[in-house]
Simulated scan of single mutants.
Amino acid sequence: MRGDGRDREIAALRAQAERLKRALGENAVVDQAIGVVITYGGVDAETGREVLQEVSRRTDTAPAQVAEHLVRWPHRTWLPDTLHQVLDAALERARSAASRADTPDRPRPASAP
């Protein structure tokens, strides 16, 4: 009976190790995808991560799956239409927000009496 408990423990540890390996691989792909977004969109790393997350939310697709598409995009030379449209819209929103943040508030002219 003691061997059964040990076998279960070993199996659980192997499963955990496999999940960790998979997670590390997904993180690497996500980081690469952020690089694609940075290059394509001309944004910084933080904005690239935010855009990737927004695309994931708006397309109801796991971030790792969005990342896979983005990483393969330069080699395939195509991106699924919906993903491409959402990516472009997210980048446009991010650029608009960045330009508003970079523009200092100007005093408004006094209204004429």
Rank of each mutant, 00 (worst) to 15 (best):
A33C: 03
A94K: 02
A12V: 02
H69F: 12
D102H: 12
D31L: 15
P63D: 06
L52K: 07
R22Y: 12
Q53H: 14
R57D: 15
T47S: 11
A33F: 03
G41T: 02
A90M: 02
W78H: 08
V51W: 01
A23S: 08
T77W: 09
W73C: 14
R93E: 15
L13P: 00
V30A: 03
R8F: 00
E26Q: 14
D60I: 03
R76Q: 15
R8N: 02
G5H: 11
D105I: 14
H75I: 08
A101I: 04
P104R: 07
V66I: 14
V51L: 02
A45W: 03
A90V: 07
A12F: 01
L79C: 04
A28Q: 15
V71A: 08
V29P: 01
T59K: 11
L52H: 05
D81Y: 04
R106W: 09
A98D: 13
V55E: 00
D102T: 13
D81S: 08
V55W: 00
W73Q: 14
A101F: 09
D102I: 05
V37Y: 04
G5N: 12
P63R: 11
W73V: 09
V66W: 03
E54F: 01
V29N: 04
R6P: 00
L83F: 01
P104F: 04
A89C: 05
S99C: 01
H69V: 12
P74T: 04
T61D: 06
L83S: 02
A12S: 05
W78E: 10
T82F: 07
A23N: 02
L13A: 04
T61Y: 09
L83Q: 07
G25M: 03
A62E: 12
Q85M: 14
L91R: 03
D44Q: 02
R95L: 06
A90Q: 04
T82W: 06
Y40K: 01
G41N: 01
R95D: 03
T59H: 06
E54S: 14
E18R: 10
Q65A: 11
D102L: 15
A101E: 06
R93N: 14
W78L: 09
P107R: 11
N27S: 13
A33N: 04
R49I: 00
L87T: 14
L79N: 02
L24V: 07
D81I: 13
Q16S: 10
V43M: 06
D31C: 10
D105H: 11
L70M: 10
P109G: 07
L24I: 00
A89T: 10
V36D: 00
P80A: 08
V29R: 08
T61Q: 14
L20T: 09
A112G: 05
R100C: 04
T61K: 13
R2E: 08
D31W: 02
L70Q: 04
P107M: 06
G42R: 02
V36I: 12
T103M: 07
D88P: 05
I34Q: 03
V51P: 08
R8M: 08
L13I: 00
R93L: 13
A28V: 14
R14W: 00
L24E: 13
H69L: 12
S99A: 07
S99M: 13
D102A: 15
A15E: 08
T103K: 09
L52D: 07
W73L: 07
A33H: 02
I34M: 09
V66L: 08
A12P: 01
E50C: 02
R57Y: 10
L13G: 00
D81G: 01
Q85I: 11
N27M: 15
P104V: 13
R95Q: 11
R19D: 10
W78T: 11
S99L: 12
E54C: 04
